[in-house]
Amino acid sequence: MSPAERSQRWRASLLWAWALSVVVFMYLPALCLLLASSTASRYFIFPITRWGFDWWEKTFDSIQIRELFKTSISIALIVTVIAVVIGFFGALAFARYDWKGRSLYQKLVLLPIFFPQSVLGLALLLWFNAIGLPLSWKSAVFAHLVWIVPVVTLVISIQVYSFDPALEEAAFDLGATRWQVMKEVTLPVLFPGLFSGALFAFLLSWGNFPLSLFTTGADTTVPEYLYAKMVAGYTPGVPVLGTVSTITAAVLLLGGYGLITLRRRARLK
């Protein structure tokens, strides 16, 4: 091995070591939650002396928790559907077509992403109050959408950027109607982007706290419940639900991307 190659390899291993330490840093809290959820005692003391999964059972037997899950999942599903539809058209305007005012449009659409969510939640609270809209999980759906639609638009746009408009023109030229072009060419080609967008929408809604806090009214989502419990003092139910959230996100995301990769490979064969 030449000295140049050796120093290159040395640099690469340093980078790897650094990146892996950052990964560990990112997952350290999740690990702590997992540890705390698998202790049998009422309080968390490390190193753990009595292991057990009693708290998992207790948490999932609770009717209240099931209600929370129902609320959170309903909100997330509705947000996903609406966000992907609006985001799809928004992304076409963002990246597919050239039109006057597009550059301004791009920046304005991204503005909500850059906005502090707690302030956005309060602003929505004021707005709902001003127009007399009662607060419930439905108003939370709207609030989530304000932040999630721009994110989804951005995610789909990245896919749209790599979309060759000539494909649509070719289909159109071959006699397809606008609707057929959409159904036969645009949607299938952009599918990976739409799928990522949907995944993002679901997960971001599922994990959202600052927007829910001010807009759910009497209904409660999982993150809100966790926050209330956390502030009130230690309950082993919190680590259990925290671990469940992390694992759900990991499974959905890794599974989703695995699916996309498999689909792509299958098509290339």
């Binding site: 690990l31 939650l33 971001l204 994990g207 600052p210 926050y227 680590p239 925290g242 992390t246």
Partner: peptide
């Protein structure tokens, strides 16, 4: 981690 509620992760 982006998809896990911020306060849960901080709790970790």
């Amino acid at each position: 981690p982006l998809f896990v509620s911020e306060n849960v992760r901080i709790y970790g």
